[in-house]
């Protein structure tokens, strides 16, 4: 005898976890806001160092990946297995491109001598040190979330391929999708705060 799987319970559990993520990044945004109020001009100078093109490109990439995950959840419910898999693969590729962009962006900053505890930042204005400290912590933590989200999506892909995730049981894919969308949601706030400050 098998008990029916509790799909709505699994989703509620995922959301409860997402709430803690919102508070986690919310706390970092509060830090940003407080220091922005104190060192406004330093933050604006720091923001000019960041390449808008990278920021815009990564925003577009994440939006497209979010769409493809959402489409794959629609597809799995319509019993369109191939489309569902294509959606997940597209999202995974987007995530990979995002990370590659991030890698080039970070290495460029490090080449310029901008990294936590670097001499340039320690000897420079304190506000810029804080700005780039927050930049590395927040985008770094976000990058870890991208890697985790990609891992979850990859597991979902395997489950879909083996028909263990199907039109009746798709909580794993749906929850991986929720996580991925939250990572996108957080980026939507990171992008203007760091790349577009005035």
């Amino acid at each position: 005898m098998s008990s029916p799987s509790d799909e709505s319970g699994k989703k509620l559990g995922m959301w409860l976890f997402l709430y803690t993520e919102i508070i986690l990044f919310g706390g970092l945004f509060v830090l940003y806001a407080v220091y922005f109020a104190r060192y406004t001009s330093d933050f604006i100078e720091g923001g000019k160092e960041l390449n808008r093109l990278f920021g815009v490109a990564n925003t577009i990439i994440l939006l497209i990946s979010s769409f493809s995950v959402a489409a794959s959840i629609t597809a799995i419910q319509k019993k369109e297995k191939k489309r569902a898999m294509a959606g997940i693969v597209a999202a995974l590729l987007c995530g990979l491109v995002f990370l590659v962009n991030k890698f080039f962006e970070w290495s460029h900053k490090i080449d310029l001598g901008i990294f936590p505890n670097s001499e340039k930042l320690l000897d420079g204005p304190p506000g810029q040190n804080i700005f780039f400290g927050l930049y590395f912590v927040i985008t770094g933590l976000h990058g870890i979330h991208i890697i985790l989200g990609m891992t979850l999506l990859f597991i979902s892909l395997v489950y879909v391929q083996r028909n263990r995730t199907n039109h009746e049981r798709f909580a794993l894919l749906e929850n991986s999708g929720l996580y991925w969308h939250l990572v996108d949601l957080i980026w939507i706030f990171i992008f203007p705060l760091f790349y577009l400050v005035i």
Binding site: V69, G177, L178, H181, L185
Partner: peptide, 16 residues
């Protein structure tokens, strides 16, 4: 922040 909130709401309502 206002535009980001609108974008976030779209993701929340439709994608999530």
């Amino acid at each position: 922040l206002f535009i980001a909130s609108i974008k976030g709401s779209f993701i929340l309502f439709f994608f999530m």
